[in-house]
C-alpha cells in the first residue's frame, strides 16, 4: 500500500507546558493510525497540530510526500480534517448542519452535497431520515456524535483525524461507526484515519499502526 500521510519528527508541548513530545509515524492508504498515551499526554493536541489548528515546535506532516508548508492552511485543513471529541453543532436543523461545510468556498469548489449518501449513512448509524428536520440543538450526545461524523466524511477529506469518536456511543452505535469509518477509509484510494480512542478495540482496525504521546523528547515517560 502506498504511503499516504507521514508525521515527521513533530515536537509539541501538550497544554503549553514545559514537557515536549516528539512524534513520528506513517499512515498508508486505507489504513488507521492509533494515537496512544496516558490522559493529558497530548493526544488531542497532536491531532490539532496535525490539522494545523495549533503550531508545532519542530517537524512537519506530509501528505502524499508533500510537506504541510507546501499547502495553504485552508488547503491543508480541507484535506486533513480534524473532528473534535465534543461534537460541534450549529444553530439550525440537522440537515442544515450537514450542509454547513458546503457553504464554504474551499468545500463548495470541489465537492457537492450528496443527499442519497447522507441517507445511506443515517441508516447505517441507526438514525432515521426524519432527524434531518430536527433542531440540531435538541440532539442527544450520541446522536450529535454520529451526525458530526457523517458531516466529516461527506466533505471527503483525505485524512480524517478522529478524537474519541466512540466516547458518547453505546456498543451498537460504536460498532456501526467503526464499520462505517473502515468502509469509508477503504472504499476509495488516498484515504486514511488517525484516531484517538479509549473505547472499543481499535487494534482490529485495518492496517493499524501506533504513535505514542506518552514519551517525552529524550526518551523518559
Amino acid at each position: 500500500m502506498a504511503k499516504l500521510f507521514e508525521i515527521r519528527d513533530i515536537v509539541f508541548s501538550p497544554g503549553g507546558g514545559k514537557r515536549q513530545v516528539r512524534v513520528s509515524g506513517t499512515l498508508d492508504e486505507g489504513s488507521f493510525m492509533g494515537v496512544r498515551g496516558p490522559s493529558g499526554s497530548g493526544k488531542t493536541t497532536l491531532l490539532r497540530v496535525l490539522a494545523r489548528l495549533r503550531g508545532a515546535g519542530e517537524g512537519q506532516a506530509l501528505l502524499e510526500g508533500r510537506g504541510w508548508s507546501e499547502f495553504t492552511p485552508v488547503e491543508w485543513r480541507r484535506k486533513v480534517h480534524y473532528m473534535s471529541q465534543k461534537p460541534v453543532i450549529f444553530d439550525g436543523t440537522v440537515g442544515q448542519n450537514l450542509r454547513m461545510p458546503f457553504g464554504l468556498a474551499a468545500v463548495h469548489g470541489d465537492t457537492a452535497f450528496d443527499g442519497s449518501r447522507v441517507s445511506a449513512y443515517l441508516e447505517r448509524l441507526y438514525l432515521s431520515e426524519s432527524i434531518l428536520e430536527q433542531d440540531a440543538r435538541t440532539l442527544s450526545g450520541g446522536e450529535a456524535a454520529r451526525i458530526a461524523l457523517i458531516r466529516a466524511i461527506i466533505v471527503a477529506p483525505r485524512v480524517l483525524l478522529l478524537d474519541e469518536p466512540l466516547a458518547a456511543l453505546d456498543l451498537r452505535a460504536a460498532s456501526a461507526v467503526t464499520d462505517l469509518v473502515c468502509e469509508w477509509a477503504c472504499e476509495e484510494p488516498g484515504r486514511g484515519v488517525v484516531i484517538v480512542s479509549h473505547a472499543g478495540d481499535i487494534a482490529a482496525l485495518p492496517g493499524i499502526s501506533y504513535v505514542e504521546t506518552g514519551v517525552e523528547e529524550g526518551g523518559s515517560k
Binding site: 490539522a51 489548528l53 485552508v74 488547503e75 485543513r77 480541507r78 480534517h81 480534524y82 473532528m83 473534535s84 465534543k86 460541534v88 450549529f90 454547513m100 461545510p101 464554504l104 468556498a105 474551499a106 468545500v107 466533505v155
Partner: peptide, 12 residues
C-alpha cells in the same frame, strides 16, 4: 468551538 470546527472544514 464552532469557529475551530469551521476552520477544520477549510474555512478562511
Amino acid at each position: 468551538d464552532e469557529i475551530e470546527s469551521l476552520l477544520a472544514f477549510g474555512a478562511t
